[in-house]
C-alpha cells in the first residue's frame, strides 16, 4: 500500500532499558524519558482515582498543567509527565485502594 506518511518507528533508537516500579509492578522504560510515556507504553493508563467520585484517571494534558497524571515518589506528589525515569525508581499511584 502506498504511504505518504511513512512508518518510521523502526528508526527510533532509545537508550538502554531500565526498570522502575509502579505500585510494586516492574515497568520497563528508558532512562531519561518521562514517567508518563513509560507508563502509557506498558499499559498503565489508570494512574489515580479522582478524589471526589473515585473514578479512574490518567495522563491528559501531557504538559504539567492538568494534574491528572500525578503519582507519588518518596512521599511527594509529582506530575508523571514532567518526572524523568531513573533506574529503580519506586512510584506509587494515588489510587484509593492500593
Amino acid at each position: 500500500m502506498i504511504r505518504l506518511v511513512r512508518d518510521q518507528s523502526a528508526q527510533i533508537k532509545r537508550a538502554s532499558e531500565v526498570r522502575f516500579t509502579f505500585d510494586g509492578a516492574q515497568v520497563p522504560a528508558h532512562s531519561g524519558e518521562s514517567l508518563l510515556a513509560a507508563l502509557i507504553r506498558s499499559g498503565h493508563l489508570h494512574l489515580r482515582d479522582a478524589p471526589e467520585d473515585g473514578a479512574a484517571r490518567g495522563g491528559f494534558c501531557c504538559m504539567g498543567l492538568c494534574q491528572e497524571c500525578v503519582v507519588r515518589i518518596e512521599g511527594q506528589v509529582v506530575e508523571s509527565c514532567r518526572a524523568m525515569v531513573t533506574s529503580g525508581l519506586a512510584v506509587t499511584s494515588l489510587k484509593a485502594r492500593t
Partner: peptide
C-alpha cells in the same frame, strides 16, 4: 476523563518528547 483520552495538543507533547503513542 477516562484514562486513554489525551488532549490533542497533549498528544503532540508525547510524540515530540518521548516518541510514544497514546495506545
Amino acid at each position: 476523563t477516562t484514562p486513554g483520552v489525551l488532549g490533542l495538543a497533549g498528544a503532540t507533547a508525547l510524540f515530540k518528547q518521548d516518541l510514544t503513542l497514546p495506545g
